[in-house]
């Protein structure tokens, strides 16, 4: 997998145009690449470097800082089991062990069928619902081993919650119409954004002792 598709290049250009400097668009573009391939491929990083005018090393420097940008292929479903303190007290580690046994992989591994990647993670901020996990960053709360097996079975078959493949950000991509732009549309564009001219006049604060 690889460079951005022609359709995604168009999306990328639109994203780049939202920023005063092209390289400011790097993080959204890395998301776009990850959405396309399920991970950020080396070729994709090279392509992004070309698009924003920096070197691939600089793209890698940014990309590798973020744990959630995967630079190796991962399964269609990324399962993150929390083992931080609340979950640990309520059976998070046992749940992780069960997941390892059920899926036949260690944390960081991917099942042979390419469906699941297992990770152990630190607190995912759902302590009241411990033990918990995420599937492609969608929460599942208070699971026991049977719940986990049922979840896996469902993902293999019906996927009733309609969880999209790893990397998918949103089903509806945001297109910002020109009149709603928060800033200039492109670095060359020096016209004042429409919203700026339309905004209501700001009342001058009154002098305190007036």
């Amino acid at each position: 997998m690889s460079r951005l598709t022609p359709e995604n290049v168009e999306v990328a250009k639109e994203i780049i145009a939202r920023y005063p400097r092209p390289k400011s668009a790097l993080i959204p573009l890395l998301h776009l690449a990850q959405e396309q391939d399920g991970y950020v491929a080396d070729d994709a990083m090279e392509h992004l470097a070309e698009l924003v005018g920096i070197t691939p090393a600089e793209v890698l420097g940014t990309c590798s800082f973020y744990e959630m940008f995967k630079r190796e292929p991962v399964g269609k479903y990324m399962i993150n089991v929390c083992t931080n303190i609340s979950c640990q007290l309520l059976g998070g580690e046992e749940l992780l062990h069960h997941a390892e046994k059920t899926l036949g992989i260690r944390p960081g591994g991917t099942t042979d069928d390419g469906l699941f990647t297992l990770e152990d993670v630190e607190c995912i901020a759902a302590c009241t619902e411990a033990p918990c996990l995420q599937v492609n960053y969608r929460y599942k709360y208070k699971l026991d081993n049977a719940d986990f097996d049922a979840m896996i079975e469902d993902l293999r078959t019906t996927n009733k919650d309609n969880i999209p493949p790893h990397g998918t950000l949103a089903e509806q991509r945001q297109h910002i119409p020109a009149d709603k732009l928060a800033g200039i549309g492109s670095p060359e564009d020096t016209t004042t954004p429409e919203w700026f001219s339309k905004r209501l006049p700001v009342e001058e604060p009154k002098e305190e002792n007036a």
Partner: peptide, 22 residues
């Protein structure tokens, strides 16, 4: 003006490196 080396994997594994094959 040749930013071909960069900090990669910033965190406990921070290292200077190039992009593969660059």
């Amino acid at each position: 003006g040749d930013p071909l080396i960069h900090f990669i994997d910033r965190g406990s594994q921070t290292q200077v490196n190039t992009f593969p094959d660059h």
